[in-house]
């Protein structure tokens, strides 16, 4: 057999089997396109070694992502709370099944021991579960009936803001989940600029999202230089809100906030967030709008 012969002829150092590497691409509209610009950048591990090439997203990719997010908004915001909760829980299930892979990827990027990386992954899984449970509860906590002084029924309920642009924190996975989950659980759709330093777990997370019944376009994930793409996101007229969690430079945060003012985006400024702590409702509440409906009472 020729194969047998080849094995016999191999040099002593060649591997038994050459690994199939993954091409890391963007995640837009439920698909995994390369950057329209054709650009990529090398991602390094904690030791400075080469891990992979990641897509270097462009302005056009931002626009495509916003378009996909807007297209998905009607369906996702119109889904029942139960359905959204089920899907977020499904994301946790899919993530759980790939714990080891995520731990390896996180550890490769951060250089931390596998046990520490696993604990990050576990916290990220638990965060999805936590937010999944909020899907059919936050409206009861943030909304209420209003006892107006007249013969009217009057009810205030939180509604999703729309398309939310997110500059994800530098830390991998847990921080990313902690900014994406609160935005989408209420029915928003998002465009996320992933951590430039740790894009690989972000794209692998996109694979989880793509297999969790999350409709395409609800989460769109771009890798590359947030310093380059964030201004396009902040200034985009079809983006309704902006989470600047991952913007470390105060001057850049101010500039993005100024750009966001053009169409009066709601802006969450960068803060010293402890991603391990229980999140509270702040981030979820930042991207909902109170809608108040009046109707006369009468016979």
């Amino acid at each position: 057999m020729p194969a047998k012969q080849k094995r016999a002829d191999r040099t002593p150092d060649a591997p038994v089997r050459l690994a199939v590497r993954k091409t890391y691409k963007l995640f837009v509209g439920g698909k995994f396109p390369r950057s329209e610009s054709g650009r990529s950048y090398p991602v390094q591990g904690a030791d400075g070694g080469f891990l992979a090439n990641a897509a270097l997203a462009s302005r056009k990719d931002v626009r495509d992502a916003v378009q996909a997010a807007r297209k998905a908004f009607g369906g996702w915001s119109g889904a029942t709370a139960y359905n959204r909760g089920q899907i977020l829980y499904r994301i946790a299930e899919m993530l759980e099944g790939r714990r080891a892979q995520f731990a390896d990827e996180v550890a490769a990027g951060t250089g931390e021991p596998t046990a520490a990386a696993l604990s990050t992954v576990d916290a990220a899984i638990d965060r999805w579960v936590w937010y999944a449970g909020w899907a059919d509860k936050y409206a009861q906590v943030l909304g209420n009936a209003n006892p107006v002084a007249g013969p009217y029924f009057n009810l205030s309920s939180p509604e999703p803001t729309g398309v939310v642009g997110i500059v994800a924190p530098a830390e991998p996975l847990l921080a990313l989940v902690s900014v994406v989950a609160p935005a989408i659980v209420t029915g928003n759709t998002v465009v996320v600029l992933a951590s430039e330093r740790h894009p690989l777990p972000a794209i692998t997370l996109a694979e989880v999202l793509a297999t969790s019944d999350l409709p395409g376009g609800v989460v769109n994930l771009l890798t590359g230089s947030a310093a380059e793409t964030a201004p396009w996101l902040a200034g985009h007229a079809d983006v309704n809100a902006l989470d600047l969690a991952g913007v470390a430079d105060a001057g850049q945060a101010a500039e993005l906030e100024r750009l966001a003012a053009e169409n009066l985006k709601r802006v969450v400024r960068p803060a010293a967030d402890d991603w391990r702590a229980e999140p509270g409702l702040g981030r979820l509440a930042a991207f909902v709008e109170t809608k108040t409906v009046w109707h006369p009472r009468g016979v």
Partner: peptide, 19 residues
Amino acid sequence: RAGVVWANTFNKFDPTSPF
């Protein structure tokens, strides 16, 4: 997509009602 929706009424205001 509006913060206040008046159904079969309009321009009603009340301190208990968010606007």
